[in-house]
């Protein structure tokens, strides 16, 4: 167990160094993207949705940033096993360790961006919401596990079928508009509110909003446990069945 942890920490350390050395202002690029996206959407949807309430910035932050994290990690990680084949072959690194380190790295980036936005909201509303911070961090740890599983499965599939990354991008674009990242579920018609619950990302984003939605806590936890259970089962079974095929292809 200690060895696995040491490997993941070393990989994370490498990833952070590599990412920030790739460009002149590496860290700024990584953080700037979600921040710009947040402020553009905040301005846009405050007007469109006509909901410029004080709670909306926190609502958007707890939806948009996790979504950005999930979709970016899944899309970045899709090629990860193929591009790191040398490490897997020479250093005997298990692919899941590479994926987990990528997920944590992206989580750190999201956290940095979120902190900047959070301080902005704090400055504006002069109100510290401890529950929000606590909820954000715990939901974050949960989403590292979840996104690692999704990315692991998609990266394995991508070794076998090269088109997966395009399909994934397409799916995430579609899901963005059917996940309540920027809009309130209550603003949708009743039928759609029911339908939207079939989207697994609805439940993931809901964990980030437990600070405001304690009514449905049991339902949210139950569905998330179910999602994790199914994904773990799929990942383990797929890996066991296709391990040789995947290693032969990389």
């Amino acid at each position: 167990m200690t060895r696995h942890l040491t490997d993941i920490i070393s990989l994370l350390e490498i990833n952070l160094k590599v990412r920030y050395r790739q460009t002149f202002i590496g860290f700024l690029w990584v953080v700037l993207n979600p921040i710009v996206l947040f402020f553009v959407q905040l301005a846009l949807f405050s007007i469109i949705l006509n909901r410029p309430s004080e709670a909306y910035p926190l609502y958007l932050l707890s939806g948009l940033l996790p979504w950005f994290y999930i979709s970016q990690t899944a899309e970045m990680g899709c090629n990860y096993i193929s591009t790191n084949a040398g490490l897997i072959k020479n250093l005997k690194i298990h692919p899941i360790k590479l994926i987990i380190s990528l997920s944590i790295e992206n989580f750190i980036n999201m956290l940095s961006a979120s902190l900047i936005i959070f301080f902005f909201i704090l400055y504006k509303s002069k109100h510290i919401d401890n529950l929000f911070v606590l909820n954000f961090l715990s939901a974050g740890v949960y989403s590292i596990l979840l996104i690692s599983l999704i990315t692991f499965i998609s990266s394995l599939l991508n070794v076998l079928y090269k088109d997966i990354k395009y399909i994934l991008h397409f799916i995430f674009t579609l899901l963005y508009f059917s996940t309540p990242t920027f809009f309130y579920t209550s603003s949708l018609p009743a039928d759609l509110q029911y339908l939207i619950k079939f989207n697994p990302f609805y439940w993931i984003i809901a964990t980030y909003r437990l600070y405001t939605d304690t009514e449905n806590i049991d339902e949210i936890i139950l569905f998330n446990v179910l999602i994790i259970f199914i994904l773990t089962l799929v990942a383990v079974m797929f890996w066991k069945k296709n391990k040789n095929r995947i290693y032969l292809k990389i």
Binding site: R3, T6, D7, V18, L87
Partner: peptide, 22 residues
């Protein structure tokens, strides 16, 4: 071909030896 191009030679040696001889 497996080395990290953004890291220095010494850093690559450090990490790779760590993975090869845990």
């Amino acid at each position: 071909h497996s080395f990290y191009k953004e890291l220095s030679g010494r850093e690559n040696l450090k990490y790779f030896l760590q993975f090869i001889y845990p």
